[in-house]
Design a protein around this nucleic acid. Sequence first.
DNA 1: CTTATGACCAGAATAGTTTTTTGGTCATTT
DNA 2: AAATGACCAAAAAACTATTCTGGTCATAAG
Lengths: 193, 193
Amino acid sequence: MNKKQQILLAATQSFSRYGYKATTMDRVSKIAQVGKGTIYLHFANKEELLKEIIKELAAQMRLAADQEINKHATFIDRFEAALYGILQFQERHELIIKLSDELKDFRTPIVKKVLADFEQEICLYIEEKVEKAIQKQEIKPCDPKLTAFLMYKTYIHLVNDWKENHQPLSREQVVYLIRFYFLEGLKPAAYQA
Amino acid sequence: MNKKQQILLAATQSFSRYGYKATTMDRVSKIAQVGKGTIYLHFANKEELLKEIIKELAAQMRLAADQEINKHATFIDRFEAALYGILQFQERHELIIKLSDELKDFRTPIVKKVLADFEQEICLYIEEKVEKAIQKQEIKPCDPKLTAFLMYKTYIHLVNDWKENHQPLSREQVVYLIRFYFLEGLKPAAYQA
DNA sequence: CTTATGACCAGAATAGTTTTTTGGTCATTT
DNA sequence: AAATGACCAAAAAACTATTCTGGTCATAAG
């Protein structure tokens, strides 16, 4: 029964473990215990299969963040809560990390496009929240698109890039640091006046 | 006469225009109007030639930044001035940009290493300045290494990555934005108390 | 004797060719 | 109507032949 779910699960597994290129449709059908032709009853092609998985992942992250957000009143608390919500997805992130690594080794245009879409999806989400916060005067006026872009990139740097040459940061540290740099700023209180 | 300078100039030119891989030692010797063997009297090999060029570039940037810094009294002014100083290097940056692009297309370990060294060089420089500023209590206490890392990355994002999908930012905008996000923070004045 | 050179060579990169793999189809089965 | 897997064209990989290039060094110039 529900063959489509089996296929999605199998594909997610294989993409996460072996990457896009090294995942064959044959293998997916084997893992899903489904005829290869069956995959094509549900997905137009390999690219669409990956796209759908990523789309679902983005939707789930959005949902997780929104749920956390609703528990808090002030922007700063909501901001931290949303970050926590997203950071819970550790295993799900593995797919994204695997695809990012793949992009460094091979030049697979499909993977590049899918990841770019994912990035834009997340940035748009952050952008929405930033816009609302500006309207409510919970943060200073700023370019929401640019702010979202920098927040996302900073998040990636703290979670992924920093650990390449240094001790990796804990979830708590990441949340603290983003709050510290984006909300508080480095200027000491004495200078504020 | 001063053959070493001729070689450095020729190599810089060719590396900037064609990248590391596509620059042949033959071509460098031709441009420098020097026998190929002569290059090897001054540089151990192709890698060392690039390294030396990058090292000099880093030193020049450091000097430019320091000179600007000395003209200003407060950390914020010095910070902006140093950024301006570095941003003046437009043409010099072309070498770095070319090498960065090359890294995306081919997997040349030497280029990767050289660029990583360059990045670390700049981060170390920023780190020094941040440390001093903390000591003088011109900015809040923070991890200097991490702060330098984020500042550098943010700078690169604003100057390079942002323009891939958006209108490029002017020098003035970049300086303003780094100041805005790193020093001021998004938290509005009302929240400060 | 010191400095400079470019013909030369081994190994790397590239181009060309053959073989294998794989995304996607569709006639057949369930 | 839903599912399958043998099948095929096209892409990737493996292999080979050819060209290119970093680095050397015997020789030349100063």
